[in-house]
């Protein structure tokens, strides 16, 4: 187990380093540069060139790469070209907001999806099953931004139950924090709940026909116990992978959701950084996301062995 863990952590370096180098090259080759964004709409060519020189963007790609490499190996992403703040601080600050949103959305997804999946799977071809399968198909097909707009229109504008945008930190006011993140979390989480529903339903249907379930039933165990102790537990293992992937997809989906609801999270930071070509911030965000993805996958693999005694590393 320890060897496995060390091997996986060792693999983290190239897994993160390769996309970072690719990102560096692609960003510098992409049209548009931060000097133009800093100088502004009324800037003359000379003013843009002056900003380029100040930022060191007039150096050759190799020179820029070596400077960048020297900093990144020390996990120093420098300062934002716009906010004049350390990238590490900016990413940490914004990532905290995204993590909070992701956790809430995940809670919505995990509370709704698997529970309905089990309910539908154990009532195959019943009315509830058909309704839920139809609902999940709609849920998977819906783009998250569209659901967000619908939720805003109904719960934000017409009924005014939830704010249509904005963010209040948990430390500032926990109630307002939940109030502001409710709609974004629901719009993100509901769609992922549809995916979890389908996996859990399929898992339940598959487990129901396994020999150990037949054995449990032949032993005269009550159906509820069979479902809870044997069917659900067997169905939950593949779902852990899905939940892991869902967490990643929620963080990705947060880019759009944070933008719609004007939430100052990592997605919003990344989006504005891309719009402004704020290279250090883009690199800091992508580094953070890459590390989180790799670690998340590691945690999921380790969870397998806890949930299924047959899996050993």
């Amino acid at each position: 187990m320890t060897n496995y863990l060390l091997k996986r952590l060792g693999a983290l370096l190239p897994t993160v380093a390769v996309p970072m180098v690719l990102l560096f090259v692609m960003l510098r080759l992409a049209p548009g540069d931060p000097a133009a964004a800093i100088a502004g709409d009324s800037a003359t060519s000379e003013e843009i060139a002056e900003v380029r020189t100040r930022l060191g963007l007039d150096a050759s790609l190799w020179e820029q790469f070596l400077t960048w490499l020297g900093r990144v190996v020390r996990l120093d992403f420098g300062n934002s070209l716009f906010a004049d703040q350390a990238v590490s601080g900016l990413v940490a600050e914004h990532a905290l907001v995204t993590v909070q949103l992701t956790v809430l959305a995940l809670a919505v997804a995990v509370l709704i999806g698997p529970a309905l999946g089990i309910a539908a799977g154990t009532r195959r071809h019943g009315l509830l099953d058909r309704v839920l399968v139809f609902g999940s198909s709609v849920g998977i097909a819906l783009p998250s931004f569209w659901l967000a707009v619908l939720l805003i229109a109904v719960f934000g504008v017409v009924w005014q139950v939830f704010p249509v945008a904005g963010y209040v930190s948990f430390t500032e006011d926990p109630v307002l924090f939940l109030h502001h993140l409710a709609l974004p979390a629901i719009s993100l989480g509901l769609l992922e709940a549809a995916t979890l529903f389908r996996y859990s339903r399929a898992g339940v249907l598959d487990s129901l026909h396994q020999p150990f379930v037949t054995t449990a039933r032949s032993m005269g165990l009550p159906e509820r116990t069979v479902i809870r102790k044997y069917v659900f537990r067997a169905a939950v293992v593949p779902m852990v992978t899905v939940v892991g992937l869902t967490t990643g997809s929620l963080m990705g989906g947060a880019v759009v959701t944070e933008s719609i609801f004007s939430i100052p999270g990592l997605g919003q930071l990344l989006l504005t950084a891309v719009q402004r070509r704020d290279y250090p911030v883009i690199e800091g965000c992508i580094f953070f996301i890459a590390v989180v993805y790799v670690l998340l996958n590691l945690v999921i693999d380790l969870l397998y062995s806890l949930l299924d005694p047959r899996i050993r590393y």
């Binding site: 049209p31 548009g32 540069d33 931060p34 133009a36 964004a37 800037a43 060139a49 719009q275």
Partner: peptide, 11 residues
């Protein structure tokens, strides 16, 4: 083009 590319390309 997007805003940033616009400003840099027209330079």
């Amino acid at each position: 083009t997007d805003e940033t590319s616009f400003t840099s390309r027209r330079a």
